[in-house]
Each structure stands twice: as structure tokens, then as C-alpha cells.
Computed example of a mutant assay.
Amino acid sequence: MNQFYYDAVTKMEQLGVDDEYIQGWQCGFLQNPKREEQRLTDAYEAGYGDGEEKNTENFGEWVKD
């Protein structure tokens, strides 16, 4: 398992990031195909894009209140 991936997911979970964002980030990072269109959410798509880029800068915006 990639340590960067593990650390990023752990931090997102600890911060309370939206589950949809986390799932998107994981799928993007692992280069899995996106969900079918009717199940896409803004959080998932944002996470997917960031995961593809291996970007951990934006997930703070998706912390649930």
C-alpha cells in the first residue's frame, strides 16, 4: 500500500471530510473508472479530480460541519 495514499485517506477521515469526496479521491488516485453518471455528486467529482492529480490541497474545503 502506498504510504502517501494511506496518510491522505487517514487525514481526510480524521478531519471529517465528506465521504463522497473521499470515495472520489480514492477512485481518482487509483485510476478507477468514475461512477455511472446518475450517482455523481459535486463532492465525488472534486475528489476524483484531486485524486487523479494526487492533490491533497483541497480536501479541507470538503470537511463537513
Rank of each mutant, 00 (worst) to 15 (best):
D19L: 13
V9A: 06
Q23I: 12
Q26F: 09
G28M: 10
D7R: 14
G51M: 11
D50A: 13
I22C: 09
Q3A: 12
Q14W: 00
D18N: 15
L30E: 12
Q23A: 12
L15F: 07
Y6W: 04
E37R: 14
G16P: 10
C27K: 01
V63L: 01
E52G: 12
A8H: 01
E57M: 08
Y48G: 08
R39W: 06
E45H: 00
T56A: 11
N58F: 05
C27I: 00
D42Q: 10
R39T: 10
R39M: 14
C27G: 14
D50E: 03
A43L: 07
M12V: 05
V63G: 07
N58C: 09
D18F: 13
V17G: 04
V63I: 13
F29Y: 15
Q31A: 12
V17F: 06
N55Q: 10
Y44G: 13
N55Y: 11
V63S: 04
V63E: 11
Y44M: 09
K54G: 09
A43V: 06
A46S: 15
V17W: 07
K34I: 04
T10Y: 03
T56P: 00
G24T: 02
K34R: 14
N58K: 11
D65T: 04
Y5Q: 12
Y48I: 04
K11A: 14
G51K: 03
E37P: 13
Y48C: 11
L40Y: 11
Q31C: 15
G51V: 15
E13L: 01
Y48E: 05
G47I: 01
V17S: 09
W62N: 12
T10L: 05
N58L: 02
Y5L: 10
L40H: 15
E61Y: 08
E52F: 08
D42L: 15
V9S: 03
N2R: 05
E45F: 00
Q38A: 01
Q23R: 05
Q14H: 08
Y44Q: 01
L40E: 11
F29L: 04
N58W: 03
D65A: 10
L15R: 08
E37M: 05
Y21F: 11
Y6Q: 05
D19G: 12
R39F: 15
D18G: 11
Y21E: 09
P33F: 07
G47Y: 04
C27H: 14
